[in-house]
């Protein structure tokens, strides 16, 4: 069955999530991957959105973090201060699932500005829930399309911390969560080196070349000696993902009275 690079990325990301895990979900690609996991191998995954919706099971993907469908299908809806304090800050979230505009070789994420902060060339939306998800979830996973503009040696602005300047700097600065475990892209999978914490390529998606990956990364990306080829997406996942996206498109194109 043919598939796109985005499908490869989303399905690979979804397969990393375990049944029963408590996930704090960002909107967009993370939300797609997490809901795909929920409707395939992980029916008991607990999805939490920063709008305060806990254990939500939307039948279509939400456009915004606070769509009615998230509230209507949640086990509980709590306030924003409660979701961030009692849940995230207190360590009740297993996996924080994030996207971003720019990421560097130590997994630091920028979603604030391109250029200088006070006089930005491009003003991006900003932090939202990401800084505390990156800091306080037990572990974080990142999903992003790999491009030269987005995968940089050093981010213009650290909105959300990865391993800062590498090594044990994150741990020494007292940040509670373990940090980004993996970056899933449309070209491959990157994981941090055990000591330096620099992200390296550990898996390459079928049909992608190393040259293509290097061309889409600004830093000199190291290749794991145990480089794997990622498993092609199973038919059942492709069908589930396409069904989910079709239902979503239909729902979002309806004009409300």
């Amino acid at each position: 069955m043919d598939y796109t690079k985005d499908e490869m990325m989303i399905i690979t990301a979804s397969q990393m999530l375990g049944n029963g895990e408590v996930c704090f979900v960002g909107i967009g690609l993370p939300s797609t991957a997490c809901n795909l996991a929920r409707i395939t191998h992980a029916p008991d995954i607990v999805l939490i959105y920063e709008s305060g919706t806990i254990d939500t099971k939307p039948e279509v993907l939400p456009l915004s973090i606070g769509d009615d469908i998230l509230a209507a299908t949640a086990s509980s809806v709590v306030s924003v201060p409660e979701i961030f304090s009692y849940w995230l800050q207190a360590g009740k979230v297993d996996i924080g699932f994030l996207g971003g505009a720019q990421i560097d070789k130590y997994g630091n994420i920028n979603s604030t500005v391109i250029g200088s902060y006070k006089n930005p060339k491009v003003r991006l939306p900003g932090a939202g829930g990401a800084p505390e998800i990156a800091a306080n979830a037990k572990k974080t996973y990142v999903i992003m399309r790999q491009t030269k503009r987005a995968f940089v040696d050093q981010v213009d602005f650290i909105t959300s911390v990865g391993y800062l300047r590498g090594g044990d700097e994150r741990r020494k600065s007292g940040i509670s969560g373990e940090g980004p475990q993996v970056i899933i892209t449309d070209l491959g999978i990157l994981e941090p080196h055990a000591i330096s914490k620099e992200f390296m390529l550990t898996s390459i998606h079928p049909g992608v070349t190393l040259e293509e990956i290097r061309d889409n990364t600004q830093w000199n990306l190291k290749i794991s000696p145990d480089l794997k080829t990622t498993k092609a997406p199973p038919k059942a996942y492709l069908e589930a993902l396409r069904g989910l996206q079709n239902r979503t498109e239909l729902a979002h194109s309806q004009t409300m009275p």
Binding site: Q89, T112, E132, A135, T159, R170
Partner: peptide, 9 residues
């Protein structure tokens, strides 16, 4: 808040 450590914000 337990947060903001290491961030540019």
């Amino acid at each position: 808040l337990r947060g903001y450590t290491g961030t540019d914000l």
